[in-house]
Design a protein around this nucleic acid. Structure first.
Lengths: 223, 223
DNA sequence: CAGCATAACAGACATTTGTCTGGTATGCCA
DNA sequence: TGGCATACCAGACAAATGTCTGTTATGCTG
């Protein structure tokens, strides 16, 4: 019955469980017991319940393998580190994962044709309230939106639902070519503004342009 | 006893279990049963064992909640059924998709603490050759990389493997703060260059900086 | 039609896993 | 010295969870 200094074993137990959980694998009490060579399950349980009380772990009651890492609360509101506007925290993992068709660049060939022949699918999380068929993905071609952090080669995920709203980043279909621009609706009609001083604002005559949808997510493979 | 077309329920079960797993939460048979309203556990077990045989899931034997996403992508062989029907949305497979822990911003509080309090999990596709524990995700805080199209609020997925290479975009740990910069290794030591003229290049003295990993993907939720 | 495969049900059963109750030893401190 | 807290052990127990065996439909196919 080797007794260790207070808190030492507890930390080792915590690190072990944490590493398991980061691997996506919640350990059972007896697995922890075996790993440390304890001769009683209760030893592990004591440690884990203590860790829960300390707030270092969280337990879902009535579940086997129910220990979790606590979600981090937004504990930094007093920090004042938000110089200017703070970026909105994205809500990942809110809906279900669905295969959104990746249409490619949609330059030559036409949009309708691209819809029929997607290049592949992208796992995208979409809200429960939406339908999978409202979404598609496109690869960005030009530099015209680089000022908004949208670079050539990036993939944008587009939701084609609802009416276009002024100020949104949209995908527009102009003469069988899809382009990403920021949409503005004024008295003079529709404006498609690039976010790059080297490009000009487009003012397509009514009827010559179709808004395919609004950009809801962006993904980039680095290197 | 409503009977569904062959394979249909199986796919729905698969998607449900896959989404659970990507959230880092392996469901029990009875949880799946409840979700679908089956009146027998065995129904679920039959589906899951079939999914394991098809290679779409993997099971760790003798464990409660032992179903996992397969490391290797068994390409979907959907034998028959490929009739020229109305473009059935191809099921992208959950092969190398794995739950990567999202650590948050890691500004105040320190990195080690952030590892212990992830905000959640992000479904990320990682290569077969890599291990899940080599990845984590972070939210970007400052404007210092906006020239590279990395904006505040974006989420970067980081691979912490191998030696840092000059020219890569990396996450560096400086005094308990994680920052995204482009790394340059010269004779004068390490340089961390922002990609924004308003920020200065950092030249941390040796030993005061740890490279946590390299940015491999970027995600942004628009609006 | 018979034969076969699949989808689903029903309920018993076995294993895994968490929980409880009580005990021993050690160190700290008033 | 006697509490008192902590670390750990021992074993029984109960709840959660996976496994098995058998049954009823339904559709397909030769």
């Amino acid at each position: 019955m080797p007794k260790t200094p207070p808190g030492q074993t507890r930390n080792r137990v915590f690190r072990f469980v944490r590493d398991c959980l980061l691997r996506g694998d919640s350990p059972s009490l007896r697995e922890v017991q075996r790993h440390f060579g304890f001769r009683a399950v209760e030893t592990v349980r004591a440690h884990l319940t203590a860790l829960v009380e300390e707030g270092r772990l969280v337990k879902e009651p009535g579940r086997a393998r129910g220990y979790r890492l606590p979600k981090r609360q937004s504990q930094r509101q007093t920090k004042g580190q938000t110089k200017g506007l703070s970026a909105p925290v994205p809500e990942w993992s809110a809906g279900r994962l669905q295969p959104v068709p990746l249409l490619g660049e949609v330059a030559a060939g036409g949009f309708e044709e691209a819809i029929e022949n997607p290049e592949g699918n992208l796992p995208v999380e979409i809200p429960d309230s939406r339908d999978l068929s409202d979404y598609f993905a496109l690869r960005v071609r030009g530099e015209s939106m680089s000022g908004a952090g949208i670079l050539p080669g990036d993939t944008v995920i587009v939701e084609r639902r609802g009416t276009p709203v002024s100020g949104q980043i949209v995908v527009a279909l102009l003469e069988e070519e899809a382009t990403v621009k920021r949409l503005y609706l004024g008295q003079g009609g529709m404006e498609l503004r690039p976010e790059n001083p080297d490009f000009d604002t487009l003012r397509p005559p009514p009827g010559s342009c179709r808004i395919l949808g609004r950009v809801v997510e962006l993904r980039r493979q680095v290197r």
